[in-house]
């Protein structure tokens, strides 16, 4: 068995709100094809971890490294070559030409002034630009803005579901595919979502806010899948749901994983999470205190006592 390739590597991550640090030197790895779960009590920093990975919360130290697949890189490059300004105005290109000219100014003839100005100009031109991706390279997610991380194949289904309550189910799904530029593929994926969650097709013209909790959770997962993620971040999918629906949702997570989506699952319902996951991390007040294979954690007496209520 070859060593699994790390898809996501979080190293010594620190993040927080205001004066408070929530995460303290947190490290974890998600390998391609795995379901990894983070279990922990309220306020341990589970959601903050996911939000830091997908760029919604700014990180303070440490790195989040991500290795996109070749396929993602190709579609990303095709859709975003050069960034919006370059594609629509050509201004950055022009500024870079100016910078190259300024860099040739002899130092004695004002080059000492012109060169830094040129560099600043080039930096300005690249601001907000979509990074150029190269294959077989890792990308540091915490230097990429949240809306671009989605395009790299990392998609979050946020805590509390956060569906768009006044958009219909169909419109919610279409918003999930906002980053995509292939209408036919999007239509096909909407049909796939309906196959996976038949209830959504029945409700497709109803506003999302009128769905029941379980249906909203399904919608949130389906919406997160619309961007065709390689890594799905699931935040508390069982929150506030009836046990029967929870089982259903976790079955779907397993099914998705079989189709090749790696999953990072954050849960308070530790028993369910450990049953579907391959590996688990235990998070306590912003620190990873324990990690092992999921079945080992499930039988570990300390875990059983603290998180499984025995």
């Amino acid at each position: 068995m070859s060593a699994p390739a790390p898809l996501l590597e979080v190293h010594n991550l620190e993040a927080g709100y205001g004066a408070i640090n929530v995460l303290h030197r947190l490290s974890l790895v998600v390998n391609a094809g795995e379901i990894v779960t983070i279990i922990g009590a309220n306020g341990a920093g589970k959601s903050t971890t996911l939000n830091a990975i997908c760029g919604v919360v700014k990180t303070r130290a440490g790195t989040v490294r991500y290795t996109p697949s070749l396929e993602v890189i190709e579609s990303f490059t095709a859709a975003n070559a050069g960034g919006w300004w370059l594609r629509n105005t050509g201004i950055p290109q022009h500024l870079e030409r100016v910078t190259r000219k300024l860099a040739r100014v002899p130092l004695a003839l004002g080059g000492f002034l012109a060169r830094p100005c040129g560099r600043a100009l080039a930096g300005f031109a690249r601001r907000g630009d979509v990074p150029r991706l190269e294959p077989d390279k890792r990308y540091t997610l915490n230097r990429i803005p949240a809306h671009l991380i989605v395009r790299l194949g990392v998609s979050q289904s946020p805590e509390g579901r956060k569906i768009f309550p006044r958009l219909t189910v169909l419109e919610n799904l279409e918003m999930g595919a906002f980053t995509r530029t292939d209408p036919d593929g999007v239509q096909a994926d909407i049909r796939k979502a309906y196959e996976m969650f038949p209830i959504l097709e029945k409700r497709k013209h109803q506003p999302g806010g009128l769905l029941s909790g379980g249906e909203q959770q399904m919608l949130a997962i389906a919406r997160a899948l619309m961007s065709r993620p390689k890594l799905l971040l699931l935040d508390e999918p069982s929150l506030g749901l009836a046990p029967q629906i929870v089982v259903q949702i976790f079955d779907i997570v397993k099914e998705l994983n079989k189709q090749g989506v790696s999953v990072l699952l954050v849960e308070q319902n530790a028993r369910m999470a450990l049953k579907v996951a391959h590996r688990g991390y235990v998070l306590e007040t912003g620190r990873i205190t324990f990690t092992d294979r999921a079945d080992a954690l499930l039988h570990d007496p300390r875990i059983r006592e603290a998180y499984l209520g025995e």
């Binding site: 809306h147 569906i163 958009l167 999930g176 961007s227």
Partner: peptide
Amino acid sequence: RLGRAWVALREDELASSCMGLNP
């Protein structure tokens, strides 16, 4: 697309940035 994005942003800013919108 822009109109849709605006509506989504009005509904929920966090969710829209998770969908790849630039608020």
